[in-house]
Each structure stands twice: as structure tokens, then as C-alpha cells.
């Protein structure tokens, strides 16, 4: 990024930050429309790639399924573009995302895939039109950058869910949980009631909490610390997931959350899938995800639920970030329900 680009991108972000982040005493963004319009048949969903690259072919299953749901699809310029691991240069990815955000015909934006790259382009994005006309942004993993940034700045709801690359190619051979996970995206987008029920797990801590749901990938949440996209968790229900990290790294990130006061004022904590990388021989960490989480939150009293179906797994249900939820963790089971 040269200096000219830098200046031209900093200005709009600074303007947006000052004009739209003023919270009223109740922490609400009362001047803004907080929930994007739900989608109707015939509405347009855009696909773009602010992070890693994806081929057109890899998007086809998602495109077909979303058409089957009755939506039209617009494929962004970054789909099929490869710049090493990225779907184009930072400027190209920012431009594609900007066009999708600004185009009033596009009612939702599904990201092609995660990988890495959102943090390299997000400060180039001007959210002013998006704030006036919010639309659903859909994705997970690296898309956590958008969920946190948008929640923090604008309080606009987003959908944390599977993206184009995680739609099964052949629905006839997909498992029921895969099919249900994909269908939960549709349910979120059309405004159907969202309520997930889970069987009890002995490691859960019982209780009930009501709050705005926020969260995503743990590595990304830590990576946003101290930045303009830093996630505020106070009074909220936090969900976290991660993939392919060593146990000691997960432990370090959980300490970062705790020491950064992101765990002490929660209304509930949801632990999604943690696919932990096996310890190297002789470096056995000796702690499970249950141990690591509970030792950080033992002095707090909110409900904690483990193995929630969110993360880099086939069973990854759509969650509406930024919207009020009730989390009920009981010995009969766990219920997470969107209540607005």
C-alpha cells in the first residue's frame, strides 16, 4: 500500500468511526437500523472473497442451493481470482467488497471462503452506505473480522455460518446435520425463528443468560485486540471456536481473553468446535478444552456450554451475531434461542 492509497482510505473510515459509533447510555445504536431486512424470494445475494481465493467451480454448490431457495446470485469479481493465497490484491478484494456493500440491489453478501486476508483490506472499506442500508454479511473463520468490526462500530447484525466453500457438492450424500447446517443459513436470512437444542454434556455449567450474541474464531478475536475492530463482550453471550492450533496456543489465547477482561462480564459462554492440533512428542500439554476453559471462568457464574455445533466442522449452525439470544444450559440440555 503506498502512501496515497493509505491517505485516501483512512479518511472515510475515520469519518465513519466518529459519526456512527456514538452509543446511547444503553449501549444501543438507536439512530440506526440494526437488523438488515430479511430476504424475500427473488432477492439478490452477492458472493465475494475478501480473504482466500476460491474457484467458480467451488462456488457452484452454494450458488445452486441458494437459487433453489429462490434467490438470485451475483458473483463478485474476486471469485476465481488468485493472487497466491488471496483472491486478488488487497485493493481488488476491497473494491469487490465495497461494490457489494454499496449496491442497493444486493441484499446479502456471502463470502466465498475464509483463509486469511480480511484484516488486510477492512480499513480500506467505507461502510457509510452499508450503515444506511444494512445487508446481511455471511461467513465464518476469517470473516470473524467483519462480524467483530461491524458489531463494534455499527451494531448491525451479521450471520456467522458456513460459506460457499463449505456447501456439500452432492446434497444426496450429505449427512442430515450438514443439510440442517446449510438450511439454517436460509432460516436466518428469511427471518425464521432460530432455536437450537443440544443434548446435555457433563462439563457444561448450568444457568441462563440473555444478551447479544457475539463471537467467532478465537485466533481472529485475539488478533483484533487493541485495534479498531476489537470485540466488546460486556453483557453479551460469547461464542468461540478454533481449528488446527496447539493446545498451548488455545490456552494462551484464552488467557488473553481473560486478562483482557473479555470473560468477566459475559451473560453466557458457548464453546464451539475446537479441533486441537496434537501435541508434539514430549510436549504433552495435559489439559483438555474443558479444563482450559473452566479454569479461566471458574470465578464467574454465567452458563457455559461445550461442543456447541459452531466451527470448522460439518455441523456448523448459522448464528445471528449482534442479536439478542437466550442461552439456557440445564441438565436436560442446552437451548440457544434468538429472541428478537
Amino acid at each position: 500500500m503506498n502512501r496515497k492509497d493509505f491517505l485516501s482510505t483512512v479518511v472515510p473510515v475515520a469519518v465513519v468511526a466518529t459519526s456512527f459509533t456514538k452509543k446511547n447510555p444503553f449501549g444501543k445504536f438507536d439512530t440506526l437500523k440494526k437488523i438488515p431486512s430479511y430476504l424475500k424470494k427473488g432477492d439478490l445475494i452477492g458472493i465475494c472473497c475478501p480473504s482466500g481465493h476460491i474457484t467458480m467451480e467451488e462456488c457452484e454448490a452454494a450458488i445452486n442451493k441458494m437459487k433453489e431457495w429462490g434467490f438470485e446470485i451475483r458473483v463478485g469479481n474476486t471469485v476465481g481470482v488468485t493472487d497466491f493465497t488471496f483472491a486478488g490484491s488487497d485493493a481488488e478484494r476491497a473494491k469487490d467488497m465495497q461494490q457489494m456493500l454499496d449496491n442497493p440491489e444486493v441484499k446479502a453478501i456471502m463470502l466465498g471462503r475464509g483463509g486469511y486476508g480480511a484484516v488486510r483490506m477492512i480499513d480500506k472499506i467505507d461502510f457509510s452506505k452499508f450503515v444506511k442500508n444494512p445487508k446481511w454479511i455471511i461467513g465464518f473463520s476469517d470473516a470473524t473480522v467483519f462480524h467483530c468490526h461491524i458489531n463494534d462500530h455499527f451494531g448491525i447484525a451479521t450471520v456467522h455460518s458456513k460459506m460457499c466453500n463449505s456447501f456439500p457438492d452432492d446434497f444426496s450424500t450429505a449427512t442430515q446435520t450438514q443439510i440442517d447446517s446449510i438450511d439454517s443459513i436460509r432460516q436466518c436470512l428469511v427471518g425464521e425463528k432460530i432455536k437450537y437444542e443440544r443434548l446435555p454434556i457433563v462439563e457444561n455449567r448450568y444457568g441462563e443468560g440473555i444478551g447479544e450474541l457475539v463471537g467467532g474464531n478465537l485466533s481472529i478475536i485475539q488478533m483484533l485486540d487493541g485495534s479498531v475492530s476489537d470485540l466488546d463482550t460486556e453483557g453479551k453471550i460469547l461464542f468461540i471456536e478454533d481449528v488446527g492450533e496447539y493446545a498451548y496456543k488455545i490456552d494462551g489465547m484464552l488467557w488473553n481473553l481473560k486478562r483482557g477482561r473479555k470473560l468477566d462480564r459475559l451473560k453466557g459462554l458457548i464453546i464451539g468446535a475446537f479441533s486441537i492440533k496434537p501435541d508434539d512428542p514430549g510436549e504433552e500439554f495435559g489439559k483438555t478444552i474443558y479444563d482450559m476453559v473452566m479454569e479461566k471462568v471458574q470465578e464467574y457464574h454465567y452458563p457455559v456450554c461445550f461442543n456447541f455445533p459452531v466451527g470448522h466442522v460439518k455441523e456448523n449452525y448459522a448464528l445471528k451475531c449482534g442479536m439478542r439470544h437466550r442461552l439456557s444450559v440445564k441438565k436436560e440440555g442446552t437451548v440457544l434461542e434468538c429472541i428478537e
Binding site: Q222, M223, D225, G226, D230, G252, M253, W255, N256, R259, G260, R261, K262
Partner: peptide, 9 residues
């Protein structure tokens, strides 16, 4: 980066 936002920042 791990200590950003913590008392050791």
C-alpha cells in the same frame, strides 16, 4: 500480540 489489551500490554 498476546498481551495486547491485557495488564502486560
Amino acid at each position: 500480540v498476546n498481551v495486547i489489551g491485557t495488564p502486560s500490554d
